[in-house]
């Protein structure tokens, strides 16, 4: 195990340095590229923050139940694609629906948590969450993959 500070804290520190110290001194094109670079660091930081809940384990378990097959995450995902294309799974299968909602929300939470379509989807998911998840509390960030805060 690495010592302190955490990987995520180091990334946050570099993001803040870029945004607060570097970008204000750059011209248009340079400033754009530096902002994108800071956003890319944010993506990696959020992935590491989410990694604590072992999302891949949950995703594989859902895929095993959904496709009836075990394998690597990539192999199971390709198998599900095959079953959708070959019409071996119904589009209104609630397991397919729940798998898509959980995994896509988790993915965009890393890639682009400020994306308008993501925010709207999270509102819809939380409104439906009573019947889908354990009660939510407010002190931890929303984790779509586990459905827990």
């Amino acid at each position: 195990m690495q010592g302190l500070p955490d990987n995520t804290a180091l990334l946050a520190s570099v993001e803040a340095f870029l945004k607060d110290q570097v970008i204000p001194g750059l011209d248009g094109a340079g400033s754009f590229r530096a902002r994108v670079s800071a956003n890319v660091l944010g993506m990696v930081r959020r992935y590491l923050e989410q990694g604590g809940v072992d999302g891949a384990h949950d995703e594989r378990e859902m895929l095993t139940q959904l496709t009836g097959k075990k394998g690597t995450l990539l192999g199971q995902t390709a198998e599900l694609c095959h079953q959708i294309a070959e019409r071996e799974v119904a589009l209104d299968d609630p397991r397919l629906q729940e798998y898509l909602w959980r995994t896509i929300l988790a993915r965009v939470a890393v890639d682009q948590p400020n994306y308008s379509g993501y925010k709207r989807a999270v509102e819809q998911w939380e409104a439906a969450a009573d019947s889908l998840t354990a009660p939510l509390s407010d002190d931890e960030p929303f984790n779509p993959l586990s459905g827990e805060r």
Binding site: E61, M62, Q65, L91, D92, D93, P94, R95, L96, Q97, E98, Y99, L100, W101, Q124, W125, A128, S131, L132, T133
Partner: peptide, 10 residues
């Protein structure tokens, strides 16, 4: 295209 299921499916 995908409605949220009414109850937990897994």
């Amino acid at each position: 295209l995908v409605p949220i299921p009414e109850r937990r499916a897994f």
